[in-house]
Design a protein around this nucleic acid. Structure first.
Length: 493
RNA sequence: GGCGCGGUAGCCAAGUGGUAAGGCAGAGGUCUGCAAAACCUUUAUUCGGCGGUUCGAUUCCGCCCCGCGCCUCCA
């Protein structure tokens, strides 16, 4: 079944088919590395990851994201910090990769703007040669919007009333039309500058994405995605540049993630509701909780990110992990039941059809939780058989290949972030909860299993005092022990 | 002002022209050395408000109220 996605370009949900055979080529706008990524950034990146993982299940995928490592904010911040921009961006690029990994975001092919400056200059030169761009007296270059009649087709804006040739002074640059956007910025004292075929300077914001996406994916490719704020002007400008150069349609599908709200309000530093991934982890929230909350709301719906929601997400993940553990550890009778096979099949089908419907993650989750409930009920009734485990686990894998929250490595991830906070002198931001979660990071499975075996021995001997002591000891190390009719189970806090 | 999106139980949230998925939280129960986990029952006569179309609307249309986004560099 071909999936359908909402395409910003057409404004409709459309059936998706790759342009070439069974291969999808996708470009996602990555971060501008001027600071640590916040939860809003990662809503978009998690959405892209969900899309990536979904596509990978069905197609061959070439997925590229860019890192913008030269722009006004970077130049400003690096200047304030008194370090070269390369050094400055390296730090935040690294942070972005770490935070992405913490949220189980798979790493696509990553390309950097500063590695493609010459290519961008050549791109601009061609635009000048074919009349779509012009140079101003100071050595900057602008795209002439009046040469691209379709300008506004993505953002649904009407620029037909624009006067061409009316020179308007904007800032210190002279543009032919106020709407014309910068392709290339003339050098300024103290700012990074490159010598190129079109002269010295640095690229404007939009040109990098056109240049790099076309280099790695071709003149026309399947999907281009990012946050909704990029629709205009960023993506609109990319279309104008790219299609003016090639005469071909640039990206065919444009997919944009909706902005999130934090506690019902737009996230902003002034409102004090601005959180980075690291902030949240240090406050005691697991990366898996953050990912779950971010994935649980379909990407085109405004997501209200709240601390209550984070707790709810943590509990939901716990339920899923507990079920996965039960399948793994339960002592079951031999045999296999048709009803469980059916349940697993229906779940896989439910996940698939939900995601094929414009990545309806909320509905996919409902399918999984339905399975968890029914399979748990069967297990409680003694009707779950050994042969049922495999299909149910496969259905869980189908789910987790997209959602990626089942594997429990939160302790290690939280520990790393705590260590980072300590190295940055942010000890005061490390909560007790975060330390409790991280406590088990250095305790190996084998070590735990050994104590669990002792605990089981004590229980067999009805030595409950000893059993409770062991449980208490494990609890100190960040391990929760549960005694079930299927035996003793443990998990990390 | 222009263009666009949304308002569903305490919270998060899916969905359909025919009578409200799922999760979290709460209440009661089963099970249990304890603690959990799990299961069962229960929690919206109702889907922002008012009209309209219809045999019937939460779902379509109009108006209003509220929230949010974009309108040159914020994911």
């Amino acid at each position: 079944m071909a999936p359908s996605f909402f395409n910003t370009l057409s404004g409709k949900i459309e059936e998706f088919r790759p342009l070439q055979d069974n291969e999808v080529r996708m470009y996602a706008c990555g971060p501008t590395v001027y600071d640590y990524g916040h939860i809003g950034n990662f809503r978009t990146f998690v959405f892209v990851d969900i899309l990536r993982r979904y596509l990978k299940q069905h197609y061959k995928l070439r997925h590229v994201i860019n890192i913008t490592d030269v722009d006004d904010k970077i130049i400003r911040n690096a200047g304030q910090a008194g370090v070269p921009i390369g050094e400055y961006t390296k730090k935040y690029t690294q942070a972005f990769l770490e935070d992405s990994a913490a949220l189980n975001i798979e790493e696509p092919q990553i390309v950097r703007a500063t590695d493609h400056i010459q290519l961008m200059a050549e791109f601009i030169k061609k635009l000048v040669d074919n009349g779509h761009a012009y140079r101003t007296d100071d050595g900057s270059y602008y795209f002439r919007i009046s040469t691209f009649p379709q300008y506004g087709k993505l953002s649904k804006k009407d620029f037909s009333g624009m006067e061409d040739g009316a020179r308007v002074d904007v800032d210190e640059y002279e543009k032919d039309s106020a709407r014309d956007f910068a392709l290339w910025k003339a050098p300024k004292p103290g700012e990074a500058s490159w010598d190129t075929v079109i002269g010295p300077g640095r690229p404007g914001w939009h040109i990098e994405c056109s240049t790099m996406s076309m280099k790695y994916l071709g003149d026309s490719f399947d999907i281009h995605c990012g946050g909704e704020d990029l629709i205009f002007p960023h993506h609109e400008n990319e279309i104008a540049q790219s299609e003016s150069l090639t005469g071909k349609q640039f990206a065919h599908f444009w997919m944009h993630a909706r902005f999130l709200l934090v506690e019902g309000e737009k996230m902003s530093k002034s409102l004090g509701n601005f959180y980075t991934v690291r902030d949240l982890v240090l406050m005691g929230h697991k990366p898996s909780s953050i990912r779950f909350l971010l994935t649980s709301v379909p990407f085109r719906k405004q997501l209200n990110f709240t601390f209550d929601g984070l707790t709810q997400a943590a509990n939901s993940v716990e339920r899923l992990r507990t079920f996965a553990l039960r399948l793994q550890k339960a002592q079951l009778p031999e045999g296999k039941s048709a009803s469980m096979q059916q349940l697993a099949d229906a779940t896989v089908q439910g996940i698939e059809s939900a995601l094929a419907d414009d990545l309806n993650t909320a509905q996919a989750l409902a399918a999984v939780f339905d399975m968890v409930r029914d399979a748990n009920a069967a297990a409680d009734a003694g009707q779950l058989k050994q042969g049922d485990v495999e299909p149910l686990q496969k259905a869980l894998q189908k789910f987790d290949a997209i959602f990626a929250v089942l594997h429990d490595d939160d302790a290690v991830k939280v520990k790393r972030i705590i260590e980072w906070a300590e190295s940055e002198g942010k000890q005061d931001k490390i909560s007790e909860q975060a330390r409790a979660i991280a406590a088990s990071a250095s305790v190996g499975d084998a070590e735990i299993e050994k104590l669990i075996a002792e605990l089981q021995e004590a229980r067999r001997a009805k030595n409950f005092a000893r059993a409770d002591a062991i449980r208490g000891e494990l609890n100190q190390q960040g391990i929760i022990v549960e005694i079930t009719r299927d035996g003793v189970r443990w998990r990390r806090k």
